[in-house]
Design a protein around this nucleic acid. Sequence first.
DNA 1: CGTAGACCCTGCGCGC
DNA 2: TGCGCGCAGGGTCTAC
Length: 294
Amino acid sequence: MPELPEVEVLRRSLEPWLVGDRLAAVTVREPRLRESVDREALRALAGLPITALERRAKYLLIHLEGAGERAGHTLVVHLGMSGSLTVTEAGEAAGDEAGAAAGPKHEHVVFALASGRRLRFRDPRRFGLVFTVPTERLPDDRHFAHLGVEPLATSDPPGEGVTGAVLEAAAEGRRGPVKTFLMDARVVVGVGNIYASEALFRAGIHPGRSVARIATRRWQRLAEAVRAVLQEAITQGGTTLADFFDGEGRRGYFQVSLSVYGREGEPCPRCGSRPIRKIVQANRSTFYCPGCQR
DNA sequence: CGTAGACCCTGCGCGC
DNA sequence: TGCGCGCAGGGTCTAC
């Protein structure tokens, strides 16, 4: 479900609700996510203030202040394909307060906050992740250690985002189609199946083209397209195809701006003549215009 | 070493 | 109405 824009929209929507509050209690109803949830590790964070929300790749980072001699910890959430994270007000029942055993279907982890609010993690397919890491060890954690460049420019650690030079250098000595290359998190993070197709369409590059056969100028176009499509999607609140909602339950609107994804058979929005084609690469659907993309 | 494919899991929409 | 099939925005592991 969520790619970089959706996680960033979620982060921004949750930030004002969470920062300044404290984690009070943690309920793990179903620990069997992509990796088993460590109940005790989560409970050990009870009482700690939430200091900041950050995003790295498609991971949401909830930073918690250290207590006494203890260093700060970070609560990490990944939504996988079907995850959602929402805040509810104190007393705003999601159907679980009375009979705390069951809870709404697929609501696997609930964080009670000192304010009485609750942060609820729901994930039907259970491809998501919830875990904790000492904040100072975050860069070395196996989930983060091998990640590539953040595609969007950042000021916090200064970064200019993904550039043509970054892509071209990463492609050196590699083979394979550019679409799967774009989705390789060791190269650039946050670009999933929707935005890979969209960025290639904007750049006019065929998704099946080998990375060994892309000139410098086109790498630049592609990097620009990646940044532009992700940035616009964030501005539109993300893409809600079926079940993406931000921390307050709001839908995204970028799906109406998608040029090719999910539009097989429709006329290309650029040339107006050729129908959008769908192919399968690495077991994932890819959409493109056979006329505009070479 | 890199790349291709299978796999984890549940729900939904479609054709019959 | 019911059933089976294919498909879904994630990442990782294995086999070549």
